[in-house]
């Protein structure tokens, strides 16, 4: 595209954008953008965080709602990050990333 922006070229871009926006969503990139979100389409995912319950957690151990006072300073993350740890090789750089739409 010519870097000298005329009103006409902007209007043409706008017109093209309208028809692109009206087209069905495609997994292909548009605007250099890829859609990552695959929000589930059931219910409402966000919970209300204020309530007047006492956590089922009490003083007894063995309930998942108990506050375990582990020493955070000596802990090691043990989650899905373990699957990302080895990805430090330069071969991963710049590789094409594609997001697959997850079925709801």
């Amino acid at each position: 595209m010519n870097k000298t922006l005329s009103a006409a070229s902007l209007a043409i871009a706008f017109g093209a954008a309208m028809s692109m926006a009206a087209a069905p969503i495609h997994a292909a990139s548009h605007g250099g953008a890829m859609k990552a979100e695959t929000e589930k389409c059931y219910g409402v995912a966000m919970k209300g965080k204020n309530d007047c319950k006492a956590g089922a957690g009490t003083t007894c151990a063995g309930t998942s709602k108990m506050d375990h006072q582990g020493n955070a300073w000596s802990m090691v993350p043990k989650g899905t990050c373990e699957k990302t740890m080895s990805k430090t090789s330069p071969t991963g750089n710049g590789q094409l990333m594609e997001f697959k739409e997850k079925k709801a």
Binding site: D51, C52, K53, A54, G55, A56, T58
Partner: peptide, 8 residues
């Protein structure tokens, strides 16, 4: 007995 108002 100690009852907890858990609403659960």
């Amino acid at each position: 007995p100690l009852l907890i108002d858990s609403h659960g």
